[in-house]
């Protein structure tokens, strides 16, 4: 911890801020675009950028997991969901609900509050990145020693989620049985 000024920037910080702006822009596009599939794709960009941020913060294992699970499975699941609910491919004018002004106001207000609070709280705090902190071996060590019990619990939770999802889908098929089944148009 050497004495550094608030905005004395290092190379890492410049990259972090640039990628951060990209992530933010992608996220904003994701929640504002009128094309539903585009929203999913902008989500990919935002989450991918976030993985880069993790790498910059030396959390390499988390970054790869992020790429694998979020980009690999979650977004694919979302795209499948869009298809299964027969979302239109082109721009849909009613993607936003009537609650939009309120949502904007609430979001802006909370952003202002949080940013003010965070900046005020961590104005003089620095992260020491000289020594990597998220290496896979160290993380695996603590994951399977200290955190093994929550880890196992989480596996049970995943199983439960799996069973629940299957049960919901089965119930739908057994009850409805309508011809309005299958993928998009």
């Amino acid at each position: 911890m050497t004495e550094r000024e608030l905005l004395s920037t290092s190379g890492q910080e410049i990259v972090f801020v640039l990628v951060g702006l990209m992530v933010l822009g992608a996220a904003v596009l994701c929640v504002t675009t009128r094309q539903l599939v585009h929203a999913a794709l902008w989500l990919v960009v935002a989450l991918g950028g976030l993985a880069v941020e993790y790498l910059l913060l030396t959390a390499e294992f988390v970054a790869w997991v992020q790429v694998l699970i979020y980009l690999g499975s979650v977004v694919v699941l979302l795209l499948f969901g869009l298809m299964l609910t027969r979302a239109p491919i082109g721009p849909s004018p009613d993607a936003d609900s009537g609650n939009r002004p309120v949502a904007l106001a609430v979001a802006l207000a909370s952003a202002a509050c949080l940013v003010t609070l965070v900046v005020d709280a961590f104005r003089t705090t620095w992260i020491d990145l000289d020594e990597p902190h998220g290496r896979s071996d160290a993380l695996g060590d603590s994951l399977f020693r200290t955190w093994v019990l929550p880890f196992e619990a989480l596996s049970v939770l995943l199983l439960a989620a799996l069973v629940g999802a299957i049960a919901l889908s089965r119930a739908r098929r057994a009850r409805a049985g309508t011809p309005a089944d299958g993928g998009g148009r």
Binding site: Q12, E13, F16, V17, G20, V119, F122, T125, I127
Partner: peptide, 8 residues
């Protein structure tokens, strides 16, 4: 790295 960046 400044902590404010990731936090903000």
């Amino acid at each position: 790295m400044h902590l404010v960046y990731p936090a903000v």
